[in-house]
Amino acid sequence: MISYKGYNAVDLHVNGETREVVIKPSETLLSVLRDKIGLTGPKAGCENGDCGACTVLLEGQPVKSCLVLAVEAIGKKVVTVEGLHDTEVQKAFVEESGFQCGYCTAGFIVNSYALLEENPDADASEKVEWLSSNLCRCTGYEDIEKAVDSAQRIKNNSESR
């Protein structure tokens, strides 16, 4: 078993880069990403796993980074919203107005991206199960639903060509 005590200089693999950071075992991945690496895309909405605004990918799986310790990410690939570029999900959120204030958006985009990677043919109930882990207070969810559906359609069409 690996144990960490006090301050540790470690490498984190974030968005394709290796970043050396000094962390304590008690620090969450969210706080290290935001405060030590400067990736402020993931947001602290509740720090309790309830809102999903801090969602990032850990080895391709969406996790709430407020519930993951930074030491748990050592040796694993972390992707934040800043690591997604020109994806169908991002384009669709713009086109379908899938956000208003934008605070929940990074979490919704990362989670939707992971959903469509993991299960490109997700049906409506699978999408609800997956995306009900994120809260949005502005949109009433209809435009987010349209954005995810549209990204799924475009992505599947372009891949089947």
Binding site: R34, D35, T40, E82, L84, V94, E95, G102
Partner: peptide, 23 residues
Amino acid sequence: HSPRRKESLDKVTGKVMYGNDYN
């Protein structure tokens, strides 16, 4: 008409800055 919001791209790329993002 419905042009996209001026801040759209910053909001889908995580670049937009809210109060707590200033450190």
